[in-house]
């Protein structure tokens, strides 16, 4: 992309501005997520209790319930958005995302199977099930959609949705045989972050941090890959290596998200598209900004989900679906070309 160097000063300015807008939105939604809930805590108190907790109920609620939940939400949002960005870069396809690629469904099928077949397993073991499922789901969709004359948006979407439907039905079947409770099915098909604890945060951090840092290093390679394989090779990039490490990162990022929060959809689809529209396709910039925006979107969705059937909890995946599906329609009506 020649314009990177041409417009570099203007570009730098714009990306810093966007980045800080994103950070601002993220902080605002983060505070909202700490403040809003069955037990109302005024905005003004949130900050105070966050830094210097007292012995009160409000402080306990913030520190033991809402804070871990908000942090899990931010990490999951960031992971999914980056995973989506990487996938869109290597497939050069704006519809690629963990959900459309069958990665989410594969991971959650394996987690459900793990829970049912080996009931004693702890969540740290189930993470590996999620990685395996993510890899298998992604591999199936990749090979189904890249036959013939290359991967077009429509081939990817058809293969992805079909595999997604298959895997979801299998999940439904497993849950139905295991326990007839309908809420379980809904949870495993929608994904949510309510009731997540510090233990989940600790579980996520090493994996997601590895993924995030890896993604930052990969940015340059992905940008050059966007120029086409021949150009990239000419510029001394090892294409095979970039693709392989991308695949591993996607599996890590999406797998850990599903293991902790279930298959939350559309974040990985929407965010990278919006970010690219705002700032072009330099993935050194797109990936970190996507992470911030993804974290913000999931946090906002989580706050909204609390209002669906207040005071009861609803899975956050429903909100992201209600927001994301119309955006998908917008992309689709443009024939799947980049927004």
């Amino acid at each position: 992309m020649q314009h990177i160097s041409e417009q570099s000063s203007l570009f730098k300015y714009k990306w810093i501005l966007t980045f800080f807008c994103g950070i601002f939105v993220l902080i605002a939604s983060f505070i909202a997520s700490l403040s809003i809930g069955a037990y109302a805590i005024p905005f003004a108190d949130v900050f105070k209790l966050l830094v210097s907790p007292d012995d009160g109920k409000a402080a306990s609620i913030i520190h033991t319930i809402r804070l871990p939940r908000a942090i899990v939400g931010m990490i999951v949002g960031a992971c999914l958005a980056i995973a989506g960005g990487i996938m869109q870069a290597i497939t050069n396809n704006p519809l690629a995302s963990p959900q459309v690629f069958g990665v989410n469904a594969g991971a959650s099928l394996m987690v459900v199977a793990g829970v049912v077949l080996f009931p004693g397993l702890g969540s740290s073991t189930l993470v590996y099930f999620a990685f395996l499922g993510a890899a298998v789901g992604g591999a199936i969709v990749y090979s189904l959609s890249s036959t013939g004359e290359g991967m077009t948006p429509v081939k990817l979407a058809l293969a992805g949705i079909t595999v997604h439907l298959f895997l979801s039905s299998l999940i439904e079947g497993i849950v139905l045989f295991h326990e007839t409770s309908t809420e379980d099915v809904l949870f495993w098909l929608a994904g949510g972050i309510d009731g997540r604890t510090w233990a989940d945060v600790r579980l996520m951090i090493p994996w997601s941090l590895t993924g995030l840092i890896g993604a930052l290093f990969l940015g340059k390679g992905l940008t050059i890959l966007g120029l086409g394989d021949d150009v990239a090779r000419g510029l001394g990039q090892r294409i095979g290596w970039i693709r392989a490490s991308s695949a591993i990162l996607v599996i890590l990022l999406a797998g850990i998200s599903v293991a902790v929060a279930g298959p939350i959809g559309f974040i990985g689809l929407i965010i990278p598209n919006i970010v690219r529209k705002l700032m072009g396709s330099d993935y050194r910039v797109v990936l970190p900004v996507s992470a911030v925006f993804g974290a913000a979107l999931l946090t906002i969705s989580d706050v909204l989900s609390r209002f669906i059937s207040f005071p009861a909890e609803s899975p956050v995946g429903i909100v992201t679906a209600l927001l994301g599906a119309p955006f998908f329609l917008y992309l689709a009506s443009r024939g799947g070309r980049a927004a």
């Binding site: 429509v154 058809l158 669906i308 679906a321 994301g324 119309p326 998908f328 329609l329 689709a332 009506s333």
Partner: peptide
């Protein structure tokens, strides 16, 4: 291609609606 993609997207919207109703 557009036909298929739009169909998938409309399906996703309906799916979101179904999930919303069943949870609510």
């Amino acid at each position: 291609a557009t036909l298929a993609l739009v169909g998938i997207a409309l399906g996703a919207i309906c799916q979101a609606g179904i999930q919303f109703l069943t949870v609510k």
